[in-house]
Nucleic acid binder design. Structure first.
Lengths: 197, 197
DNA sequence: GGTATTGTGTAGTGAATGATACAAAAAAAT
DNA sequence: ATTTTTTTGTATCATTCACTACACAATACC
């Protein structure tokens, strides 16, 4: 019954693994959105009762924040890897868009981007947490562009931000990978053209 | 007290105007989303009680459907006007994107597109109603493109659908008109380039 | 006036929400 | 063995949700 082998701590051991709870929460929140996933569903999926849930995670919003952290590490578009400076700016942004399309359409059960689909949720705390990641990603893109195209950084960032949000929305609509990829490449072509002039 | 001058009908006259109710519902649903607007808020904003609400509109989802109809007539991007066949395809699509940016950013209180922001709502009935309008709009665009560029209709439709969804999302984020317009024009440039080859 | 018809106001329905009080259970420390 | 600490299960809490039962009010028809 005891999953956590970390002994030495006093008191009754946990009957479940909190890290698995975060992973499960990430999947559920991504699949159906923060607002639509209830504490009752999370607890029953984990096989625990509400008091265990709140003792381990604090609140539904706190767990969402942990799920966002985990998403950023494991599932989000890895901007830091893709935006290496030894490549043309347009090439880096094209890689970002292509990778976004691939990830957004990878699993139909969790289509789109967890962050982009959460910045409009109705819970103020959860929305604010998602907006932190969203703003950080946009700033990371802007800085990458501004390094070599400072005069076009704002416009191109606005555009790629819109395209990524659109790719996420269309992925949630069920658009398949090849069509999403084609749209991403059209967006990349627009950026390449803009940055070449 | 009687706002509806349509007499001749028996029974106690209505103390409010249902058309104004639809207009108000359109604004509220657009401003905060179907899920976040409660019947209590709608009734109190109209100065009526729940029984009057349900007698006039049937249900919250039925009222949303009426609000969508009104939105399509008064506030949505007028595809039929913009996509006249006596212009290059790329020019028509550019007009659509520019008009979308203008409308999505016109009123900060109702930023974005009511339809695009409603296709992901959690109520199944309301979501289905929004998806009808969404699919109709995409099909209208696809047909316009396919008329002269049948081999590129799917790809370009997917792209402009994603860009419009992205413009709506960024508008809800608070992006101002000029920046939204610049992003729209970059998307239009990508379409023009794609259709010219 | 009398009756049928239609809308309104009061008050409340059951279901679902996120979150808890409380005591028993299970471990370590003494 | 007793105490201390931590987690667990039962049984809720208060609030909000969309929605309605019911009697009264206000009009048209006869």
């Amino acid at each position: 019954m005891n999953d956590t082998k970390k002994s030495g701590r006093r008191g009754r051991p946990r009957g479940f693994n909190p890290d698995e709870g975060v992973a499960l929460a990430q999947r559920l929140f991504h699949a159906r959105g923060y607002d639509a996933v209830g504490v009752a569903e999370l607890t029953s999926a984990l096989g625990i009762n509400p008091p265990s849930f709140y003792a381990a995670f604090g609140s539904k919003a706190d767990l969402f924040s942990l799920a966002l952290d985990r998403y950023a590490i494991h599932s989000a578009v890895p901007l830091d890897d893709l935006l290496s400076p030894e490549q043309p700016v347009a090439a880096g942004l094209a890689r970002v868009l292509e990778e976004a399309a691939r990830r957004y359409a990878a699993d139909p059960a969790t289509a789109g981007c967890l962050v982009l689909e959460s910045v409009g949720c109705h819970d103020e705390t959860a929305r604010a947490a998602a907006q932190v990641f969203h703003r950080a990603a946009l700033e990371r893109l802007r800085a990458f562009i501004a390094n070599r195209h400072p005069d076009k950084a704002e416009q191109v960032t606005d555009f790629i931000g819109a395209v990524m949000a659109g790719l996420s929305a269309r992925a949630r609509d069920g658009l398949e990978l090849d069509r999403l990829l084609a749209a991403a490449r059209l967006g990349a072509a627009a950026i390449a053209e803009e940055l070449s002039t």
